[in-house]
Amino acid sequence: MSRRGTAEEKTAKSDPIYRNRLVNMLVNRILKHGKKSLAYQIIYRALKKIQQKTETNPYACFHI
């Protein structure tokens, strides 16, 4: 039996632009060799292209 206490479950932080945990979780999944800034660039470019093509809120398309 372990003498240590149980670890608290951490919640994911939100991303700087959309203020959403889901976007940040996606960024963490596509991380390239620990370069989070590159992962953010990839996601934000993709969301920008979605906005240009559909002319709607890209987060709404992403969340579905």
Rank of each mutant, 00 (worst) to 15 (best):
K35V: 10
Y40D: 06
V27M: 03
Y59L: 11
N28F: 04
R29W: 09
T11F: 05
L31S: 06
A46L: 07
L26C: 10
E9T: 05
L38C: 02
I17K: 13
R19H: 06
S37N: 07
F62A: 03
K35Y: 07
N28E: 10
Q52T: 13
Y40A: 05
L22H: 09
S2Q: 11
L31E: 05
G5F: 08
S14T: 11
K36P: 07
M1G: 14
R3W: 12
A12R: 06
K49Y: 11
Q51K: 15
A7I: 12
A60R: 15
Y59R: 06
I42G: 00
P58Q: 05
Q51T: 09
T11Y: 02
K35T: 08
M25N: 12
K10E: 11
N57F: 03
L26R: 09
L47I: 01
Y40N: 08
Q51P: 02
A7W: 04
Q52S: 14
I30L: 07
C61I: 15
V27S: 02
K13E: 14
A39S: 11
T56P: 01
Y44H: 04
T54K: 13
I30F: 07
V23E: 00
R19A: 03
R21L: 02
V27H: 02
M25I: 15
P58F: 01
E9V: 13
D15Y: 01
A39H: 02
Y59P: 04
M1L: 08
N28R: 09
T6I: 14
K35P: 02
T6E: 12
I17T: 13
L31T: 09
V23Y: 02
N24W: 05
F62P: 03
K32C: 08
K36H: 10
I64P: 08
N20E: 11
Q41T: 13
M25F: 08
I64A: 08
K35D: 15
K53G: 04
A7E: 09
K49P: 00
Y59H: 08
F62W: 05
M25E: 13
S14P: 14
K10Y: 01
L38E: 08
P16E: 07
